[in-house]
Design a protein around this nucleic acid. Structure first.
Lengths: 219, 219
DNA sequence: ACATGCACCCTACCAAGGTTGGGTTCTACA
DNA sequence: TGTAGAACCCAACCTTGGTAGGGTGCATGT
């Protein structure tokens, strides 16, 4: 039962079972794979690799828990250099694309991509090619709205305090904030005191850390 | 051609076509849906709603571009109050679960959940029930590793500077950092000066804003 | 007519953050 | 053996951040 040319298998690694399933089905129905293994963590992956023939390609989710994707990728490439690996991500940070490539990935694709593009990328890798979609402006467009929005009402802040808060979150010191808003530095400080009181924190650093991962919206 | 009891349809809304496809297939194969529409944006959704009978349930991704999911949900609930809506998210922030509930969702589930749990949630909603998995410690476990990891080498920092940096990113003032590391406050300041020089920023606030969205890893 | 709240200004004060210039010990490396 | 860098300490200094206690003008609504 040695490796047969006509048997084209793949492995999909993603911690979202439903996603894994969808991709596996797609590879079988639209990319000519005869068998696709779906695993949800690194342990299952290595176990599976030990018990089966090497697959024709591997599809790997970047956002495995504990940042396990990159170590797995490097380890994998050290052992099975020839297997093409397509890294995918629901995220939009352009840095992770280069991260993946540095770690040995043969391709990178966003999960937002259409099935057609996905199939094209898969075929490119099967032909020993690469696939690193750069999508310059698309990435910029997406990065703006990744954080959970939070409104001024929820924070109990006035409109002016909201403006100041926005600049604080950009890391500006009081002097610059005053310039931007055409205010005296003292007035800025008073607005900040109001913000500190509302958010129940001690200083601007705690404001930032408290609101990390949140996006301030005017409305 | 009025609504027939035996026809159970659903709509899946997600900006990731492959994910949408996977979930749609799963609903058909494991939850007894006869037809599942898959759409990738709000425009397609409303167009589809206008041309078909109301579905038995709707599965909605929280992270639609532009934060469109919540407005869509509210609009939808205003028009079709009776259709159960299951909101899902690949994210782990517990706040978005309550956000979804406030906007009228009948259920919330993480994409990481197993297909079995997903099916259970779907059935709960079909029986006019709710499904808001609270998962207290699971959420804590997940929230820690969402950001793109960055190593000390990349930043050109020493191990000790890395420890200090970690505490800065948590929003601690110098005094507390000194206590934590059993150092004098002066020594902490010197480490910070080194960090500032390396990262080419002026103060601790710029450190935090520069590294926002990144996770510091020791190795 | 009056109070309330917001935005804005000022002076003054103190705490926290960051720099500079000293110094010690240890390890690693040529 | 000497030199270089990392980690620690201290004293002194200046800048920034935040508070307190004054004040004005303007829009609210009772």
């Amino acid at each position: 039962m040695h490796k047969v040319k006509t048997v084209k298998t793949a492995v999909v690694i993603d911690d979202h079972p439903l996603v894994t399933r969808g991709i596996a089905d797609f590879l079988k129905s639209h990319c000519g794979f005869s068998d696709v293994h779906a695993v949800c963590n690194t342990a299952d992956f290595w176990h599976m690799m030990g018990e089966n023939h090497p697959p024709a390609m591997i599809v790997l989710d970047f956002w495995l828990p504990d940042g396990a994707a990159l170590p797995l990728l490097e380890q994998l490439k050290a052992k099975h250099e020839s297997i093409p690996v397509l890294v995918m991500s629901a995220d939009d940070n352009p840095a992770i694309c280069s991260k993946a490539r540095e770690s040995g990935a043969n391709g990178f694709i966003h999960k937002q991509e259409s099935p057609e593009v996905f199939a094209t990328a898969v075929n490119a890798l099967l032909d020993n090619g690469n696939w690193f979609s750069n999508m310059p402006n698309h990435a910029i467009y997406d990065t703006s709205n990744k954080e959970l929005p939070i409104t001024l009402q929820e924070l109990g802040l006035t409109a002016r305090q909201g403006e100041v808060l926005g600049l604080i979150l950009q890391g500006l010191p009081n002097k610059r904030i005053a310039q931007r808003l055409s205010l005296s530095e003292q007035t800025v400080k008073e607005h900040i005191s109001g913000i500190l009181e509302r958010l129940k924190v001690r200083n601007r650093v705690e404001i930032i850390t408290k609101l990390r991962g949140r996006k301030l919206v005017s409305n």
